[in-house]
Design a protein around this nucleic acid. Structure first.
Lengths: 223, 223
DNA sequence: TCAAAAGTGTTGTGTGTACACCCATGT
DNA sequence: ACATGGGTGTACACACAACACTTTTGA
């Protein structure tokens, strides 16, 4: 059987889902959104949100749709991670999933997915429960990719508002990389890279020296 | 509709294929294997080989099976690239493809896919014909990934026999990266990395100084 | 003896890292 | 005046890039 002589109605097809690891930074912690399963299989286990790809939507559109349904956030950074297709990863039937990861700003969050009694909740990546299906593996993949991307890219800014202090930016990096960075080296590097731009604004906060606010400079702005 | 209450027989499913960009190095050129399509759509256009994923095989197994059917080579380096799922990428029906790329040694090749009259042929990546579907995009992705991987990894060795000269190894790097490298810097770096090991063997070839043969050292060997 | 590829070191430049103190503010 | 986070510079180690000549062989 090959593509050249194929009648799509003739064969059984696998189901195709998208599953998304949704990251945010909240309370100085890197968190992902999990959903508690209500039915077999893996009833009562936590899982990353996902759903079926509709016949007329692209994979990315499917991921965006699910993301919106789950978080009510529209403006997200979304990137494809990997396709997981082990024939036995879902005991019900053959399900191939295209995994994505998304970064959302906690300021954009309108849902209160933080109560112990709800079936949707943010979990610190350091304290994850046992997950359904092969979702552990998907989350590990996502974390690894996020760590590889956060340096030298616009990734970290996805977690921050338009104006931010360099300390805030450094915090994001430290949370994602899970290690401390040297303040002077971090600032020098970020400024050398030219990905941020000083603004005139200054934020007063607490009884200490106020902080200069910076703006993210996209490669388009730099020209 | 979500995964929790899903009857797989109830909905229409997309078709799922795997398509593989198969690289080899031949005649001092980086080449990929293309197949000429016999039927609509894109009749007579060249395409990367691929086929449907069977219900009980993993994505990687499907890629390996197709690869074997096409090249008769079993021992290949295979890596997942990206899933392409635009709803209109195939005019017949919804087809989601998981793209892989494979590296094979030209010495392993038993097919003679090199005649102009055959419908399977190796093409230099520098002189590719117009491709069917979105295969241009898939090939670009594959090339980019290959370039990113070739430095600091075991990628280049996949194109070489067990014993090779450092000049051969450098040639692979140059072909993949499409630029010349400095001989001294290349040799120093490779030797420093500890990924190759000198052997006692020496290859005489042509009327010039013979070359020392090296062996690839896997991370397992290094311990 | 010559053509042809193998093999070999040094130096400058840039990048990553380690490290400690003063500054501006609110209370 | 003091507690708190904001902000700054220097020195060393290491990786990368540029660069040219000698060695060994077969014909």
């Amino acid at each position: 059987m090959n593509k050249k002589s194929y009648d799509p109605s003739k064969y059984e097809h696998p189901s195709v889902t998208v599953d998304t690891v949704i990251f945010t930074v909240q309370d100085n912690d890197l968190k992902i959104l999990l959903v508690k399963r209500k039915y077999w299989p893996y009833k009562d286990r936590w899982a990353i949100p996902g759903g079926f790809v509709k016949m007329k939507e692209s994979l990315e559109d499917a991921a965006k749709r699910e993301l919106y349904e789950e978080t009510l956030v529209n403006d997200v950074y979304l990137e494809q991670l990997h396709a997981f297709g082990d024939p036995r990863r879902d005991p019900r039937t053959r399900v191939i999933t295209i995994a994505y990861y998304a970064l959302i700003k906690s300021e954009d969050l309108r849902i209160q997915a933080d109560s112990d009694t709800k079936d949707v909740r943010w979990f610190s990546v350091k304290k994850l429960p046992k997950l359904a299906f092969d979702h552990d593996k998907i989350v590990s993949y996502a974390l690894e990719k996020l760590r590889n991307r956060v340096v030298y890219s616009d990734t970290a800014f996805q977690f921050l508002p338009a104006l931010f202090t360099l300390t805030e930016l450094q915090n994001i990096h430290e949370l994602v990389l899970d290690r401390e960075l040297d303040k002077r080296n971090f600032r020098r590097k970020i400024l050398m890279l030219g990905v941020v731009e000083e603004t005139e604004e200054i934020r007063h906060e607490g009884r200490h020296r106020p902080a200069r606010l910076y703006r993210f400079v996209t490669s388009a702005d730099r020209v």
